[in-house]
């Protein structure tokens, strides 16, 4: 499998970070960085990471199934993650999530037909004091109201 030079560079760095013979440690960071580029954790990617980190593919499979941010299926170009955990719940997180479902026309872990947006109801992501919060890809948005979410999504759509 080939990756961008930037990702290759990142991998090279990763593999030197851990004590000698401990390349398995690079599995999780490698998967998540590669997922960003490849779009999903594919079978091919699993085998590639296994090879690079000198583990068996099933050892990588175990990890992929465990971590909630690793996805075997491609997500939307913009992955909209709405938190509904307690701090967000108290200030409209659930309503925001319901709104997002209607706005995007998709449900939990679903992707819009055009592949642009996917939606996920997520657990606490560390924005409790600025709730309700939404993370789109890796960007945090705080104090999000349904109106603000509309603007965000429309803005991303327009930028296409």
């Amino acid at each position: 499998m080939t990756f961008s030079p930037q990702l290759e560079q990142r991998f090279a760095k990763l593999l030197t970070r851990y004590p000698e013979g401990r390349t398995r440690s690079a599995v999780i960071p490698m998967l998540i960085y590669a997922q960003d580029e490849v779009g999903a954790v594919t079978r091919e990617l699993i085998d590639e990471v296994a090879k690079r980190c000198k583990v068996t593919p099933v050892q990588v499979d175990e990890v992929v199934g465990y971590y909630s941010m690793l996805h075997r299926k491609p997500q939307g170009k913009f992955h909209v993650q709405v938190c509904t955990n307690i701090s967000c719940l108290l200030v409209g997180g659930e309503e925001l999530y319901e709104h997002a479902k209607k706005k995007l026309g998709v449900g939990h872990k679903e992707t819009t037909a055009d592949g642009q947006f996917s939606l996920e109801e997520v657990e606490c992501m560390g924005a409790c004091s600025w709730a309700p919060a939404v993370e789109i890809n890796y960007d945090f948005h705080h104090h999000v109201t349904p109106e603000k979410l509309d603007q965000l999504i429309d803005g991303l759509r327009k930028a296409q």
């Binding site: 970070r17 440690s25 999780i28 998540i32 960085y33 990890v63 909630s68 657990e123």
Partner: peptide, 10 residues
């Protein structure tokens, strides 16, 4: 010192 990213697990 190095960073190490998790991938979603409380």
């Amino acid at each position: 010192l190095h960073t190490h990213s998790g991938a979603g697990a409380y």
